[in-house]
Nucleic acid binder design. Structure first.
Length: 424
RNA sequence: GGAGAGGUGGCCGAGCGGUCGAAGGCGCACGCUUGGAAAGCGUGUGUGCGUCUAGCGCGUACCGAGGGUUCGAAUCCCUCCCUCUCCGCCA
């Protein structure tokens, strides 16, 4: 959610941003400004009446104290009418505020000036490439190898739960654990504080990071207890400091957290969902930063570089895309996607998405910091994966695949795996 | 899950229908005092929203959350949430 004051003062800029992001109704900007004006003038009127009513109530109290019941009664008759008027205005106020909120929620975040303007993924910019994508065709896709070697059991997963909930068996279960440990250790060594978080969240938290309203369909629900299963650790981690004021000397705050993630992924199909490409439950190590607004873009770059360094350490070829305005999402001001090369599929797979949300999330959850002069200000949030597990596993199974079906273990994982090679 | 107690400012803790945004204490900040420090003394110290003459201004809202009673609610009533104690259950 953008700041109304900002919208009021930058109406044209916001409209342009909406157009660049492919939002079709920039007239919402004018509407929001109108509703906001109505709301503000009504606030003033209401506050004046309240002020009068408070005065009168005090007078009544004083008169009652002196036993002057008749005089008090006169004022009471008057304030009863006042009261009705106030209640009327309060009702109107509530509906105006809700209307303003509804409109505000339809206005996307404003992209940074360094973001390429574009409509679809075609317009994303290749920001960086690392390593050589392997074009050899003999490598099996990870699902074929995984099933052959009985390392990944999709069928039993489907039996026990449903499609998209695989079992990982033996050495591949261990490989995931190795990756998780490696990612968490590395993040901790790089200044991120590890957090173990609740896997279920309440509605307020879902609202805070923007899953609600609009994207609740992505989440699994536990209706009886009014919880949602987390679609990413971003939700509990960012909400950790919801409704708090953080001392500026404590910024930036950096957290890392490993969690399973649950996503309904309604509407996905075809090659997108083959094997480990897209699951309903997957593991991820998430990175979240809460930063001073002036540092946000530097912090985004360093987050991106950090995520890239993980892939380099694993020696997995990748490319970094700078997402264009049309493909970057509603809440972000700038976003990079990291994609690894899958030689078994001859395609790129996204393993990390690093985004700056500006004050968009923080405003919704009243997440502020205290400035030098004592004022409070909304801080900025940044997050990214470091990294999402299944596609990294897929890449390792394909890139490190030998002709006999065994898998060489990347150097950095060997201490965690206790072996240099995975055989069936 | 059953029975009871309770949720007030950064913290502790009073208030239990009117003058309460809220006593008192602690903490913190600044000043005085001191050779320096402690003690002592003085002043200040919540958040959101609106507003302007933008001031250590004015108004308003907020004492777990939401609703209600009343001219007036931190105080009374209802619903919910959370915490603590005992019992039950249990990784």
């Amino acid at each position: 959610m953008l700041d109304v004051t900002y919208i009021r003062e930058n109406a044209e800029k916001v409209k342009q941003a909406m157009q660049n992001k492919g939002e079709s109704n920039p007239e919402i900007v004018d509407k929001v400004i109108t509703v906001d004006e109505q709301w503000r003038s009504l606030v003033q009127e209401t506050d004046e009446l309240r002020s009068e009513s408070n005065d009168k109530a005090k007078k009544i109290g004083a008169l009652m104290g002196q036993g002057k019941k008749d005089e008090a009664q006169e004022i009471i008759d008057y304030t009863s009418k006042l009261k009705e008027e106030i209640q009327e205005k309060e009702t109107k106020l509530r509906s105006l505020k809700n209307h303003r909120e509804d409109l505000l929620l339809q206005i996307p975040n404003v992209p940074h000036k360094s973001v390429p303007v574009g409509k679809t993924e075609e317009d994303n910019e290749v920001f960086k490439s690392w390593g050589e994508p392997n074009k050899e065709e003999w490598r099996k896709p990870h699902w074929e190898l995984g099933e052959e070697q009985e390392w990944i059991d999709f069928e039993r997963g489907a039996k026990v739960t449903g499609a998209g909930f695989p079992f990982y068996v033996g050495p591949i279960a261990r490989l995931q654990r190795a990756l998780i440990n490696y990612f968490l250790n590395t993040a901790t060594e790089n200044g991120f504080t590890e957090l173990q978080v609740p896997y279920f969240i309440n509605e307020d938290s879902a609202r805070g990071t923007g899953q609600i309203p609009d994207k609740e369909d992505m989440m699994y629900e536990i209706p009886r207890d009014e919880f949602f299963a987390i679609p990413t650790a971003e939700v509990p981690v960012t909400n950790f400091h919801r409704d708090e004021i953080i001392d500026k000397d404590d910024l930036p705050i950096r957290y890392t957290s490993y969690t399973p993630c649950w996503r309904r992924e309604a509407g996905s199909y075809g090659k997108d969902v083959r094997g480990l490409n897209r699951l309903h439950q997957f593991d991820k190590v998430e990175l979240v930063k809460m930063v001073h607004p002036d540092d946000a873009y530097d912090e985004l770059e360093s987050l991106r570089e950090y995520a890239e360094s993980l892939l380099e350490a694993l020696e997995i070829p990748y490319r970094t895309l700078l997402m264009c305005t049309g493909d970057m999402g509603f809440t972000q001001t700038k976003k990079y996607d990291l994609e690894v090369w899958s030689p078994g599929q001859q395609r790129w797979l996204e393993v990390s998405s690093c985004s700056n949300f500006g004050s968009f999330q923080a405003r919704r959850m009243m997440l502020r910091y205290r400035k030098e002069n004592g004022d409070t200000e909304t801080l900025h949030t940044i997050n990214g994966s470091g990294l999402a597990l299944p596609r990294v596993v897929a890449a390792i199974l394909e890139i490190y695949q030998q002709e006999d079906g065994s898998i060489l273990v990347p150097d950095v994982l060997q201490p965690f795996m206790g072996t240099e090679i995975i055989t069936s």
